[in-house]
């Protein structure tokens, strides 16, 4: 259960993955702001795409990782998997919040309204609710093993729920621009925008990895501290 071997050294060094992530984020946004032309109809507001869409991708990635880590934990009972689930969910909530904030910011100039019950935005909102509930649940359970077990159950069911919410809200109504990059006949955006777009995706994915690594290191230290406190 305890894996002292993975306890990090006491001296804190800056994670090279974090450095790389920040560098790529800077590169992507430098490119997005100065070197990518504004979109013809939406103007400068369209730049928010480079935050909104990659954040949404990371949000779903994060919760997928949480569900998978939880499922594997149920079989392997390895504490590191639970720390991964916990860290990924927390980082995921941050990115989901970014999606929910940038959505209205983009929506106001483009659609003329802050909030619309658009299918994908609504889905993201429910995703946020599910995983905030997940984190609240983690917060009220003191026992490490019980917490991991319960969290795994909610993580797995949450992942199962997403397609159902997607179907429901999609059937309800949809206003959202249809996919403009991942289309079979090729992206509808100019190549220069697509390159920036993918760079931003890559940057956010790296950022996700860096955040999760930092959060996991924290969780490892917390668990080690708890173990030391009970004399285990």
């Amino acid at each position: 259960m305890t894996d002292v071997s993975s306890t990090p050294p006491a001296t804190r060094r800056v994670d090279p993955v974090a450095l790389l992530a920040f560098a790529v984020v800077a590169l992507a946004y430098g490119r997005a702001i100065w070197f990518t032309p504004p979109e013809a109809t939406q103007g400068f507001a369209q730049k928010i795409l480079y935050v909104h869409a990659p954040a949404a991708w990371v949000a779903f990635l994060a919760f997928g990782v949480t569900a998978l880590a939880g499922a594997f934990w149920l079989f392997l009972k390895d504490q590191r998997l639970d720390r991964l689930a916990e860290s990924s969910a927390e980082v995921g909530v941050i990115f989901t919040t970014a999606v929910l904030v940038t959505g209205p910011l983009w929506g106001k100039p483009v659609w003329g309204t802050w909030w619309t019950w658009d299918a994908r935005l609504t889905l993201t909102l429910f995703l946020w609710f599910i995983y905030v509930g997940y984190l609240v649940l983690r917060g009220v359970i003191p026992g490490r093993e019980q917490r991991a077990r319960y969290a795994a159950v909610v993580g797995i069911l949450g992942a199962l729920l997403i397609p159902f919410i997607h179907l429901s809200v999609y059937l309800f109504r949809t206003l959202h621009p249809l996919p403009v990059v991942a289309r079979p006949e090729g992206p509808a955006m100019p190549t220069v925008m697509v390159k920036t777009f993918f760079l931003a995706f890559f940057a956010f994915t790296l950022l996700y990895v860096a955040f999760v690594r930092a959060r996991m290191a924290l969780a490892t230290e917390r668990d080690a501290l708890d173990d030391a406190a009970v004399g285990g």
Binding site: M1, T2, P142, G143, R144, E145, D223, D226, D227, V230, G231, G232
Partner: peptide, 8 residues
């Protein structure tokens, strides 16, 4: 042996 959160 039964361990609860690091305590035996």
């Amino acid at each position: 042996v039964r361990v609860f959160g690091g305590r035996r």
